[in-house]
Design a binder for these strands. Structure first.
Lengths: 213, 213, 213, 213
DNA sequence: CATGAATGAGAATTCATTCAT
DNA sequence: CATGAATGAATTCTCATTCAT
């Protein structure tokens, strides 16, 4: 099951593991998979080139390890938000999720970079596969969410759950991508503190989805 | 005005131009900008390496030429659909636009590839710039569209036009991306003829946007 | 005798000849022989690449034509100075010659560049040959000069003419090279107007050569 | 401090180092910096292309390493001569220095080539800078020399030290250059054993500089 | 006689991976 | 188990010269 046999890497001291991961994340974030340079990774990590190939048999497997880690963090983050907000009303929760996403981008810009590169290009091993998996997972996450909203009568029971989740995923994803692009655009004059536009979107969704006038 | 000075290329016989464009499109579609190989392009086109650099001073300029061509085709296509459907009711038009997009992907899969790569990665000269421009253009296209719908009383006049356009763009784009990913996924078992899910989305949008019960 | 058969070039309108020469001089001055680009020359001259190869069969022959022209100008200049100053006393004449050289560098920096590159490297067809010819010519020029000085009793009649000319040539050449290097050194803080150091050298020579206390 | 980080190269077996240096020296000597071909160097040295770039990050840094080595040898040689001859009278020493230079050219013709190319062209990284530095160093070397001569009353105390050093440097340099050019001129019919002309120059200098009749 | 498209060898540099120590 | 030297194919781009039109 575990394609990336990392037995050797896992036995390394945590500290050393972290140094290698950090160097890899930085390089992959800046350059994507193919343009990332193993040379630079080992230089920045301060390890021998041969060692990296001892831990991970190839650049591809290193990349899989790193992005798996990145996704795990994203998912854990979102799960936490979902759980912590489970007392809130649906659209409050939705807003919290979006802001959690933005928060994540602010705190882990490199992981965000990897995520968006991964999501949007297929310049990586198993590229398109991963993209579809991510979509599916995100949609499933939102489906469950929507179902809870319907149960609590906060959402119209006439909603087609799958379709709604699909649309919601598209919108949420675009919101985060827009924020991400502005964040990394040196010429952007957008006020990063002003997140009114996000509230506005949530408002429109509320009108459309709650089934109430 | 014309950043990519292509005087020399333009004077080539149409037939030869097309061979070179085809080879370039195929290579960029398969590999994105940075991972595309000029070597492979010239080999596939059957021309000398030096020749390509006579026509286009650099790989970047060749890429700009190619993607400009691709975008021009996409835009012309969408403009035609908008104009031809301007007697139709809003959601009929919306549906036509989506199917036009799908049609385009079917007919020009390589251009679609370039489009989605462009839209979604920043692995190209002026990468993020282009992405934002494309979003803006698409949103503007839809804004105009929505305004017409409101004027004809086919859409609720309470809609926030910008926000709605933003969301619509996100959804339409994801629909096409989903279709595109399935098309290129050899393992996909999805029935490409079955576009019911698209109609279902349009239906939900109709409920949400028309302001009618 | 005329290695560079330039019949064709000579029949061109003077104006066009000059444009081509100017472009060539600029390119050779900036880049030496081998690194000069024929492409750039024809672009700057605004002529077809094939045309240049019609006029001059090769890059080498073009270079020979150009540097011959440049040397002709240098020599004509020096001959004029010698003739115009033939009433002056030896060391006055010497000083005039040096300042004439400096003047030439100021007025024709590109030709000076070619001259010094030629003089000092062998990155050109018949490289070392040319250098030796130039030395010989310069030494001969100075020999004649010295002989006139001895005849007029302005120089000691005990001087070994050849040896003195050799040394004088070395010194004069170094003076001009020093000036030239400063002229093109952007970081040089030397006061280009202050030519006192040159007079000082002439003074020392006067002491050494005139045979008078 | 050490601009050309050559840690990797320094750790190579001396024998291999020498092979690479020899190939580099030969290529740079024959072609100068820009026209030297890294391809040819690695072929002649019998190593992989990538290896050279492991040792030296760029052609420029390889060149810097090589010419630094060459200059170090020249300087060490001259310093030795100066020290070994410090009991001799000034003009004897001067003569020894000149013959030492000639000796060096005979023994290390390739290094001499690099030296004269370096001295006389600016086709190298930091080209003109280096030339001026070399002049300055040579002049300083001679200044010290002249001062010692004055102290010992072997030279006139009326000499302007800087000016004299400048002139002496010009003359010595031209002597060596002349010898060097003859050495490499296959058509030269000069008798390389006959160095009478050099003694003649020293004689003239003695008359001019010693202040004695 | 002028044109400029075509050529293809050659340039410097980077890269992931291997393997002897 | 760690090391880092060695590899050589691949990268983009430049060049002087030719020759059909």
């Amino acid at each position: 099951m575990n394609l990336t046999n990392t037995k050797k890497f896992d036995h390394l001291p945590d500290e050393k593991q972290q140094i290698i991961i950090d160097a890899s994340v930085a390089e992959f974030a800046d350059n994507g998979f193919k343009n990332a340079s193993v040379n630079k990774i080992v230089n920045n990590a301060g390890i021998a080139k041969g060692s990296l190939f001892n831990y991970f048999k190839s650049k591809s497997l290193l990349f899989e390890y790193v992005y798996t880690l990145a996704l795990k963090e994203v998912k854990a983050y979102l799960a936490r938000v979902r759980d912590e907000s489970n007392q809130d009303e649906f659209f409050t929760r939705l807003s919290k999720i979006i802001h959690a996403g933005i928060n994540f981008i602010d705190k882990h810009p490199l992981l965000a970079k990897i995520y968006f590169r991964l999501l949007n290009s297929d310049d990586s091993p198993r590229g398109k596969k991963i993209i579809k998996e991510l979509h599916t997972e995100a949609v499933d996450y939102l489906k469950q969410f929507i179902m809870e909203g319907i149960e609590r009568k906060e959402l119209s029971d006439k909603l087609n759950i799958s379709t709604t989740a699909f649309m919601l995923e598209a919108i949420l994803n675009r919101i985060l991508q827009t924020y991400y692009l502005d964040l990394f655009d040196p010429e952007s004059d957008i006020d990063k503190e002003n997140k009114e536009w996000i509230n506005s979107i949530v408002g429109v969704l509320k009108n459309g989805l709650s089934g109430k006038p």
